[in-house]
Computed example of a mutant assay.
Amino acid sequence: MRNLTPASITQAFADYARNAPSPRARTLLTSLAGHLHSFVRENKVTQEEWNAAIDALTRATRFTDDKRNEYILFSDLLGVSSLVDMVNAAGSGTPSSVLGPFHIEGAPELPNGGDLWRGQVGEPLVVSGRVVDENGTPATGTVLALWQNAGNGLYAQQDSEQAATNYHARLTVADDGSFAFSTVRPVSYKVPDDGPAGDMLRILGRDAWRPAHLHMIVKAPGRPPLITEFFPEDDEHLDGDAVFGVRSGLVLPFTRLTDRAALPAHLAARDTLPMPVWSARLDLKLAPL
């Protein structure tokens, strides 16, 4: 197409894609190009500014490996990961949230009542709860994928001193939908900010803090997975989460238990945990199919 103008280039892109084999791919990519074209027109983006953006993406490649993905970090920090979650979220049940970059497929199995803390650095936390469907019926056969950071604020993938699957596990709930485990109380931390995504934060005058949280994927038979995370209500970073993952329905009280008899009876570390111990109750409700 000849004699293109700033006003006509978006339609020209759509015309070039008229033979795309996938209608959905054509819709997504022509929409993306259209928004990018509008961005350039509205802001009169200079060559230097666009080259700086391309350079940031090029540098992101050098920061991406099997332990860290700078592109996911950009998506998280721009709020795109959270927005994708929100526009696809169920309208009822326990809210979903962002996956984050540290989930491990095939993590070790943890018996119901098992211990992830094992006396490591940090304050022990006892988590208990129940998973039910939309009718309040126990979600028998549900498997919980669990992961979090250690007491030093680092995930296993970030810390060579930790075992590769430290604080990662899969737990099958009991027939009545109940579950319990002991772990470390998670701590707030900064997302990696030594790469181009961190440069973006500094340009915007933003910080890199995430509030403390417990990650979970709820896999109930016959239902799509629920990806979510839970936050202690006393964390100072709840209203400034760098990746926009906090939902009001996921903020919970973390309380202190002083009576050992109040701990779940089947908790493996029930008799050895140092008291008092932190406690959190996570009752999950699945959305209707």
Results as ranks from 00 to 15, higher is better:
T172L: 07
K67Q: 07
D259L: 02
T30M: 03
E123V: 11
R202W: 01
P288A: 12
G93E: 00
F39C: 08
A14Y: 09
T228E: 01
A139T: 02
K219G: 10
L284W: 07
M216S: 10
D85L: 01
L146N: 01
V126N: 05
T255L: 14
Y155C: 07
I104W: 13
P124R: 05
D176H: 02
P211F: 00
A208R: 09
M200P: 00
W278V: 08
R24M: 15
Q157F: 11
Q11V: 06
T27L: 13
V84C: 04
I72H: 08
K190I: 09
D65S: 04
A261C: 07
A17V: 14
Y155F: 14
P6L: 00
N19R: 15
P276V: 12
L289W: 12
P108D: 03
D176S: 05
A52H: 14
D271W: 10
A12I: 01
A139P: 05
Y189S: 08
Q162F: 06
K67D: 05
L226F: 03
W117C: 04
A269E: 07
T258K: 15
S178Q: 10
V173Y: 03
T258A: 14
T140K: 15
A20V: 12
P101Q: 04
S160F: 12
H103K: 13
Y16A: 15
N51I: 13
D193E: 08
A242Q: 01
R118G: 10
Q162V: 02
V84G: 04
W50G: 13
E236V: 09
M1R: 12
T5F: 04
I203G: 06
D175Q: 09
A208F: 04
A197N: 00
A20W: 13
H266F: 10
W50Y: 14
A208Q: 03
A163R: 14
G34N: 02
N149E: 04
F181K: 06
F63Q: 11
V80C: 03
D15G: 14
Y71E: 02
R260A: 11
M86W: 11
M275W: 13
A12S: 08
V218F: 06
E49H: 15
L154A: 04
E161H: 15
R118K: 13
Y167S: 05
V191D: 01
I9Q: 02
L257E: 09
G114R: 11
